[in-house]
Structures are given as structure tokens and as C-alpha cells.
Nucleic acid binder design. Structure first.
Lengths: 210, 210
DNA sequence: ACATGTGAACTGCTTCACAGCG
DNA sequence: CGCTGTGAAGCAGTTCACATGT
């Protein structure tokens, strides 16, 4: 992939948004789209759209716009969605179970291998065809079939310990739902989704309006 | 609250992180903490911590640091956590149910009034003591007991229609779990949590490493 | 004529470095 | 002396505006 310069997180999020709209347009058979149209739908500006895309190449035709199928395909390639990523989910509580279901049903390109838990009353069950396995088997399983991405849905107290094990297994990408600040080596990417933080952001917004 | 200047989103997220650590220190009876210590635990720099706090006032003592209980209390006040926010959850599917549970059990300061759904097989049930009500009753309920915050856990296609109704009900803060770009008036704050986007961010990170 | 691609200007967040004060 | 509070400097992301290509 060789990116010449570091790409901002915000850019990648916008590319995801553009791709979502492009796939919608694609399914409706539209052939081309302008940066202006993408911007309007994505809640940004046409200059931003063009700048985002220009970081990866020149995909448009002057005077015309972008070919919908081609741009969609380019974005999928940029985002690494051309392959199946192998995902494990750690924690099969309410959140973990909801994530299994969500990923199992909705998300192409991400295949859930298994969920893991330490609660013996859950181990052996399946959610949407995904087995719940003993978290003690994590390392053994990972040696046979190494996951690319781990989704963490365990209590905050256990989070760092589990992360250490995942890192030792060679996992390089973690989606963290625990309200904990995780320490990882610099070659491991962590994205944290923190309900409490989002709610506090809303609380601040409500409070700071006059 | 009267903020003199606009506060960055990133600042607010860091304040949440600081508060989490302060509450931990508080419960362990520690009296003071330095910006350096907070920075280390929060994965940032001491200068950043001091700058973040200085946007709201001077809470520390030179040569000493910050009083843990006082700073915690100040942050709670800044973030608007001194009161109970009334929350409704729209959508009682797997995600909605998981959120009801999470908010009901874990989150002080946010009281869930009800969940809403259109599926008659769900209406009338309760999750963790929270009633699932007919979404048709939303407006009537809101008039009697107006919610401050709405959590959106409905399919993307319905999201905008529901948002329009929420806005009409006077809701000024929305936590959106639907993969949709929402249009709202400028006095309404929306925070979107988008699984697909986060996963695509991880996919990009995995792909763009050499 | 129209819409892209991009250097330049701008805006705003982060980092630096040090004066100020306990 | 130690640590805060803060202008100034540095850096990164966004917006502008126009040359360029079709």
C-alpha cells in the first residue's frame, strides 16, 4: 500500500462515508458522481472530498466527475476491503453477543471465527452460528488460525490482561469496547469505542449551551 | 456554563479520561495528582493536560499539583454530570437491548426512561426494569416527560425519519448507532458511533503497514 | 463550460519553554 | 525547588482559489 505521507484518521472515516454512498449509487446504477454531490451527502465540502481522494491518486475526470464503480472499487482497495479479515470477539456478555450478531449478519469482509468467554455456562453455545469458546483456548486456536482483528467486550479490569495475550498471539488490530486506556506496542492499532465518553460529550454539549 | 471559546471535541474526550482516573484515585484516597501523572495514565502529555484544564480555569497549586477530589468535582461540573439526564432508547433489537442493559447498570447520571420499538412482539416487555413502549407513543410520552438525550439503535433506513420526530419533540442530543449521516438543526448535537467505520479504519491500518 | 487536482492561505490543536508562585 | 499556567512556536487538517484538462 505504501502511503507516502501519514493519513489522518478523519480522512479514513470520510472515505468510509463516501464508500457507503457510492455503494448506494452503484446499486441504483448511477454512472458518475461529482465531488460536490458526495460532499453534500457526506456532510462535508467538495474541496475536502477532492483533497481526501488526491492523497491516494487522481481518480476523476475533469469536467465530468468520478466513475461510481471505479471510485467505489478504488476506495475498497484503499481501505483494504478486498479480502476477508478474520475476527475474534472476546467476551460473550450482552455487548459481545450483540456484536457477534451485528458482525455476523451485516458486515461483509469481516468473518467472525469465534467468541471467547470464561463463563462456563456460555462456553459451547453458539450465537448466529458462531461458537463461544473457552478463553483459555485463545492461544491454541490462534496458533492454528490466527485472527487479524480482535473485538474486546470484556469488563475494564480484565481488558489490559486480555490485550497482552492478544498481542502475544500476533493480533495487530483491536476494537476496544472497554472503558480502559490500553497499552500496546506501536505496531498494534487500537480503536476505542467508549459509551461513557460519548454520553459525557453529549452532556457537555447540553450543559455548555447558554 | 459560558465557555469563552469553542472547546474542541478532543479536549472533552480527554477530560472524560482524566475524570475516570481521578475517580479511581479518589476511591483509593489519594489527595493530589500532578499533570504528569494524569498524562502518563491517559496516554497524553503533561502540557496537554494543563492546557485542557486551563481552558476552564486554574485548578492546581504550583509546586504541588491538583487536589484529586476538587479536580474530579470540577470536571464533573464542566461535563454537566451534576444532574440526571433523561434518556430514551429508540430500537429494542439486539443493539438496543444491550444498550439498555449497559446504561441501566453502569452509567450514573443517565437515567433511561424507556425503550421504543415498532415490533408488537417486543412492546410491553421490560429489559432490566426499563419498559419497551410503542414508538407511536413517543411524542405523547415526550410531552409528559421530555427526554434530554435519545440513543438511536434502529436500521439506517429509518434513522432520519426517527431523528426528525425526536427533533420535533425537542431532543437536543442524539447518540446515533445507525450507519447513516443524519441531518439536524445546528442546535442539536449528534454523536455517531459506527461499527463499520471503525472496522474499516482497522482494515486500513492493517493494509497500509508495509 | 465544467469539475478536478493542488499549491497557498488559513484555522485550530498540540507542543514547547519559561515565567510565576507556592 | 517543583509544578502549574500560558504566550509563542510548530504542526496538521481544512478551506480557498485557480490553473488544468476534457
Amino acid at each position: 500500500m505504501r502511503s507516502v505521507k501519514r493519513i489522518a484518521d478523519s480522512t479514513i472515516r470520510r472515505l468510509s462515508v463516501y464508500l457507503r454512498f457510492l455503494e448506494d449509487f452503484e446499486s441504483r446504477g448511477l454512472a458518475t458522481i461529482s465531488s460536490d454531490e458526495l460532499a453534500r451527502r457526506g456532510g462535508t465540502t467538495s474541496a475536502q472530498v477532492r483533497k481526501d481522494l488526491s492523497l491516494f491518486g487522481s481518480f476523476g475526470k475533469r469536467g465530468l466527475g468520478y466513475s461510481v464503480p471505479e471510485l467505489a472499487s478504488r476506495l475498497r482497495e484503499i481501505l483494504g476491503l478486498g479480502r476477508q479479515w478474520k475476527v475474534v470477539i472476546i467476551g460473550a456478555g450482552k455487548i459481545g453477543a450483540a456484536l457477534v450478531q451485528y458482525l455476523g449478519l451485516k458486515q461483509r469482509g469481516f468473518r467472525v471465527l469465534a467468541a471467547y468467554d470464561s463463563d462456563s455456562s456460555k462456553i459451547g453455545k453458539t450465537f448466529e452460528g458462531i461458537p463461544v469458546r473457552d478463553v483459555g483456548h485463545l492461544e491454541r486456536d490462534a496458533r492454528k488460525n490466527p485472527p487479524d482483528i480482535a473485538v474486546l467486550a470484556v469488563p475494564s479490569d480484565n481488558a489490559q490482561a486480555v490485550v497482552n495475550r492478544l498481542v502475544a498471539c500476533g493480533v495487530k488490530a483491536i476494537l476496544n469496547f472497554a472503558a480502559a486506556q490500553l497499552q500496546v506496542p506501536s505496531d498494534v492499532t487500537v480503536k476505542t469505542v467508549n459509551m461513557a465518553m460519548e454520553l459525557e460529550g453529549l452532556s457537555f454539549a447540553l450543559t455548555s449551551r447558554d
